[in-house]
Amino acid sequence: MTEPIATRLIVILLLALLGWTEVTIARMRQLWAAVMLTGIFSFLGAGWMLILDAPDVAFTEAAVGAGIATFLMLATLGLTTREAKSPTAFKPLPLVVVIATGIVLVYGTLDMPHYGDRQAHIHTYPEPSYITKSNAEIQLPNIVTAILASYRGYDTLGETTVILTAGVGVILLLRNERRKPRDGVDPTAESTT
């Protein structure tokens, strides 16, 4: 715990706001407000990511979570409905499942290395570390980019392909341009809605 007091206060404030925002979202039936609060949740998460020394991730999250994802959900609400149906009765089963899962997960963390521990496995393995290796082999200031594009190049190629697939899927689901009939026969005449 070598963080300055101010940082710790900011972290506590951020975490409290994160929890509060999420509980509010869970209780809310107004979908518009829930979507806006999800954007705020993303922003707060991005704030904590910055304190966790991951600025790349933080501003991706700010641009994606608070920008694009919020817009997409608002667009969906514009195409469907604005308000969720009020629940008919309180069902205890989901709450039981969630609390049980939470207790199991907390039990699992008891063996985890402590926050910021320099002797944790993640900081001692692999040896030599990516930082030492990329200094010798790639010599880029931003080690995150070096790992992303070079050491884990296959992974990133796969992720890019996933994004391509998702984009194609959205086109197939939402774009309703009929094909021009060929030889007087429309091949999609019966299948399109």
């Binding site: 966790l52 020394d53 991951a54 790349d56 991730v57 991706t60 999250e61 994606v64 979570g65 694009i68 994802a69 997409l72 993640i122 900081h123 990516y130 930082i131 080690i143 995150v144 790992i147 992303l148 884990r152 992974d155 990133t156 992720e159 996933v162 994004i163 998702a166 984009g167 899927g169 959205v170 689901l173």
Partner: peptide
């Protein structure tokens, strides 16, 4: 330096996440 590998994993996961959310 904090470990760069979690940043790399999560960076790609965020953008893939929004693409699948769109789907």
């Amino acid at each position: 330096y904090s470990h760069p590998l979690p940043s790399v994993l999560i960076l790609t996961a965020i953008v893939v996440g929004v693409a699948t959310t769109a789907l």
